[in-house]
Design a protein around this nucleic acid. Structure first.
Lengths: 331, 331
DNA sequence: GGGGACACGACAATCGTTTGCCATCAATTG
DNA sequence: CAATTGATGGCAAACGATTGTCGTGTCCCC
């Protein structure tokens, strides 16, 4: 059982008694050609089980039919929804999607992007670690869309967590908390900056003291240090940069026998997988991650359809809301 | 700022004063050519920031440098480790990897595979839903490696959960449990069959009654029904098909006020993200998922290197062990 | 009935590589 | 010193599609 030579456009053409070019057009140019011929060709193509060689298509047409989604860590559940969303949408658009793990490294991110730029129609950067300059330069080489990162001139989708933060503060204040601390993520994180900023604003509005502890790394393991820092701060409630960190923090609090929410209320961000079944279930900011993924692909498609378009900045802002569970309670 | 024509192999050749073929060889055939020339060409390529067009390479050489990893659901944390492992290994081997979500559908899985077979060097099927026949047929069209699925003639990596199941039963028996029920996943799942089989064997060894409830769907939401069924069965301990289901079950038990492990001990399988911080932390079977991913890519590479090789069946069996947490206790 | 327009489909160039084959030249050997 | 060998690098033919250009046939309208 030797591998049979795969059927090419020429085989189809020969079988149909037409030129390859006719087959090509019958298959991909809806407006062109005789409907009868087209149907005949399509039938033959189907019968022969013809699948166009995408490499050849790409080489010839310049379009690869592939986009990339870059995430800093594939195993961070935060990306679940986004991945799902982009996959849905790109499948619907007939695009292939490669998932690239940048391992939190700006250099790796840039290298991968540069290396693959020829084999991609575009890329979506979920939480890019690249500098603004680097991003703008890369955008000149390959169409880019960012998620949760705002850069002049680049289409972007941002899940408006600042808005949610305000809701969280509102919630905590209504429960009687007057001393709320923000548990900061990495300084370089765009989302972290945005959230911290929103915290300050919300706190100011209520005339509260605002402080922060950190910065801490993104992972769950940083939760230990974070928990201790929060406890030292004497605050009665905290808003944590993201759920991963918040869950780590919860674990440590349990270890130290600190009652949540009795002694300390905890609010997370992102509503990741696990936020609903950790102990206690986490009050957190939920956002439409899948929708964000879909929107990002749409934006990219827009940019692709008309390559000479002025790359008009288009930004999609998605709302978040507070999901109250059991990690928050009266002061 | 118009997009500059990307630099091709011809540009490099012209600059170096040699033929394109020489450049090609200097760049990719280590044994061939004058070392001095090679270095000169490499230097020029680097200087010009030359990146080979992978489409053209693929078209010409027949190798695409891309493999696919098919999973039934990208957002199932079970695949975390596997994804990480395959990505690591394929990056190391200079391969691109596409992640494909088959949405639990055999048809979709087959279609995707057929459709992409021309643009892939091979594929790794993590928990394939395809029939044995379909798998064997597809393997004739594109090199395949399976994970957690044993099919005659296909290289495979399996995480030996049956072995872990034996450990789990041992653990429960030593805690005094005499009535253990298996909470079954989908009938069509290969892993489920393997686990159920192992359960029966282990139970027989200890002269225990063995029963099962189910089958239940894979998701967390099925946990509700599963919990009720287990309670009805009167068993004092249960081994659950996977952690997702087990976590769902735990949630329901908490709702019903059933003490775990006081009234019921629960053992899961897979040790997914979340198993350590759910409530109570889950005793479960841990396996080297990352390693499985790496092994799968290795197997695939082996199959790729020598396409005319007799496709010798090679199987990698990876051990599991029981990770005891707090969801199991004395009967 | 003749001319023009238009639709159809063929031809052939092109995309950027790889790779089999061959000419050339230097080095080694008898 | 001649002949064999081996290394080197150039030529050109693929790989399988897309797409601009152009001849041919059909139809319509005046």
């Amino acid at each position: 059982m030797t591998a049979p030579r795969p059927v090419t456009i020429n085989d189809v053409a020969a079988r149909a008694g037409v030129a390859p070019s006719t087959v090509s057009r019958a298959l991909s140019e809806p407006g062109r050609g005789n409907p009868a011929t087209r149907e005949r060709i399509r039938a033959i193509a189907r019968e022969l089980n013809y699948v166009p060689n995408s490499q050849a298509q790409a080489l010839s047409s310049g379009r690869t039919g592939t986009i990339a989604l870059l995430v800093s860590d594939v195993t961070n559940p935060f990306y679940f929804g986004i991945i799902r969303g982009t996959q849905q949408m790109s499948k619907a658009a007939g695009l292939a999607e490669v998932l690239i793990d940048t391992e939190d490294s700006p250099d790796l991110e840039g290298d991968m992007l540069r290396k693959m730029r020829r084999s991609l129609d575009g890329a979506i950067l979920a939480s890019s670690r690249l500098s603004e300059r680097a991003l703008i330069r890369l955008a000149g080489e390959i169409p880019l869309v960012t998620i949760n990162r705002n850069v002049r001139g680049l289409p972007s989708v941002v899940i408006d967590s600042p808005d949610g933060i305000a809701q969280a503060v509102e919630h905590l204040v209504s429960l009687g908390h007057r001393d709320i601390v923000y548990v900061s993520g990495p300084e370089t994180s765009w989302s972290n900056q945005a959230r911290w900023h929103a915290m300050r604003k919300a706190a100011a509005k209520h005339g509260l003291e605002f402080r922060r502890v950190g910065p801490f790394a993104r992972g769950r393991s940083s939760g230990t240090a974070a928990a201790d820092a929060v406890l030292n701060s004497g605050a009665t409630a905290c808003v944590v940069f993201n759920d991963l960190l918040a869950i780590g923090l919860l674990t440590r609090l349990a270890e130290r026998g600190v009652a949540v929410p009795g002694r300390l209320s905890v609010v997370g961000c992102d509503d990741i997988f696990g936020a609903d079944f950790c102990h206690p279930p986490l009050t957190t900011l939920s956002g439409p991650a899948e929708q964000a993924g879909r929107a990002a692909v749409s934006l990219l498609l827009g940019r692709l359809g008309d390559p000479r378009a002025p790359a008009a900045r288009r930004a999609v802002l998605l709302p978040t809301h507070l999901t109250v569970r059991e990690s928050t309670g009266p002061a």
